[in-house]
Simulated assay, not measured.
Amino acid sequence: MRLQLLLFLTTTICLISTCLATPQQPISLALFEDVIKHWHDQNDDDQSDYFSPGEVVGIADTMLLYQRSNGGWPTNKDPLRKLSRTEREQVLADSANNDASLDNRNTYPQIRYLAAAYGQTGDPRYRHAALAGLEYILTNQYDNGGWAHSPPRTDRYYGHITFADEVMPGVLHLLRDIHQLHPDFDFIPASTRALCSEALAKGDQLILDLQVRQGQQLTVWAGQYDRSTLKPVAGRSYELAGLQSWESVAVVDYLMSIPQPSPQVIRAINSAIAWMDKVKLQRIRIERFDTPPVRFAYHTSTYDLRVIEDPQAAPIWARFYDLQNNQPFFANRDGSRVQSLAEVKRDRRTGYSWYGDWPADLLSKRYPEWQQRLSRHNN
């Protein structure tokens, strides 16, 4: 009975707010691209209806439904998808589940969206939900400044300090915007803002402390670190401990967003850029070719991949590099480390990004622009 009452009240409020709301300006959904992709990879036969980006109230209300009682959100839910009555009942029944996560760029995007929705609508539910989400983030920061993959869980890789999928830089970007008085967050109480600033300072220092060294040379960052030893560790079975090029691009972008970077921050950026330039792979490209479809647990593979020699190919990067010698490596679901893409079984070969041009735009455009801004500031 209680569940039915909650569903009735939530549905009624949603319908009233949707009917009375004036047309809203679309709020960017760019940060949700990862969770949306994962939803559709896992549900490729879904026939649901979807909100348009301009239906802000409907999207925001869906986020309210999914928010767990601890303030966080479960990952890989498409916020544009219209839930059936049965699904809404199940989501409400699951509200106490311990499955909130920062993985796949999750939870901090919902906070950003709801804050912007509150600015447009004045609906206090969105303000309350954004503050609850922020409390989830602040409560679950480790004393050393890090955030785990899926707090408060600490089993398996869920408790590791995580850079993969922009957990650390994504959370810190949010806290920095709050610290710098971004207008979307002007509703945040001064006491909470002060806590955000403290968490930001601890997180910033940890990023600098965790930049991997090879001898005296700073390189980039691993995807996960043990929360106690602060040493690089494996994530999922095929995500072995290593230097990660894609994940490190987001870290550098975050560090470059700091308005007045310290000498330590500047050194961290310059060192990471030098490493990315050093390990780029030339004269090869990744060829994609069609194959009969094969359904795996988390995606349907309709193609395969192979490495082709090509003297004219633009530089690309492996996702994983050895912590000591910078050699690219790969892995299978059984945890076996291999040295070539061809040795990766098709499930992970096509269901995971082992190669990419992730640092290319950073090296050619964003880093030079940052250097110019820094030079103007210093002059």
Rank of each mutant, 00 (worst) to 15 (best):
E166H: 07
N76A: 13
A132H: 09
D226C: 03
D94L: 10
I258P: 03
I16Y: 13
V338R: 13
R193V: 07
R288C: 07
D123C: 04
Q264C: 06
E247D: 11
R193A: 11
P183N: 06
P183C: 07
N104D: 10
Q211L: 02
P109N: 10
I273F: 10
K280P: 04
L15S: 15
F187Q: 02
A129R: 06
S197I: 06
D78T: 06
D155Q: 08
V35N: 15
Q141A: 05
S69N: 10
N70Y: 13
L65Y: 10
F329V: 07
L243I: 08
H182N: 08
V265F: 05
A96V: 01
R227A: 10
Y238V: 04
K82Y: 11
W354R: 07
N140S: 07
I36C: 03
Q25V: 09
Y126T: 05
P263G: 03
Q224I: 01
N97Y: 01
S237I: 05
H299L: 10
F187A: 00
Q214G: 00
G133L: 00
S84L: 12
R88Q: 11
N104R: 08
P74F: 09
L174I: 09
T300S: 15
Q327D: 00
K345T: 07
H38R: 13
Q120I: 08
M168I: 09
A313I: 10
Y136I: 00
A130E: 02
R288H: 14
I269Y: 01
R346L: 07
S48M: 09
S340L: 11
S248T: 12
A199H: 09
A30I: 05
W221C: 07
H377A: 14
D290V: 05
R366G: 00
G133Q: 03
V279M: 09
E287Y: 10
E33M: 04
D209H: 15
W147G: 04
V167M: 02
G242H: 09
Y142I: 02
T154D: 13
T11L: 08
T291K: 06
L64A: 07
Y254K: 08
C14A: 15
Q282N: 12
P328F: 15
Q214L: 06
S271D: 13
Q211V: 03
H38Y: 15
S245G: 03
E166R: 14
N70P: 02
G72Y: 08
Q90C: 01
A96W: 06
Q110H: 13
D123V: 01
E198R: 15
A117K: 00
S257R: 04
P26A: 05
R85F: 15
Y158I: 01
N104H: 14
P74R: 13
R81P: 02
S340V: 13
L240F: 07
D45A: 14
A318I: 03
K231T: 10
P53V: 03
I308W: 11
L174P: 01
T302A: 14
K77N: 15
Q371I: 02
Y126F: 13
L134Q: 04
Q282K: 12
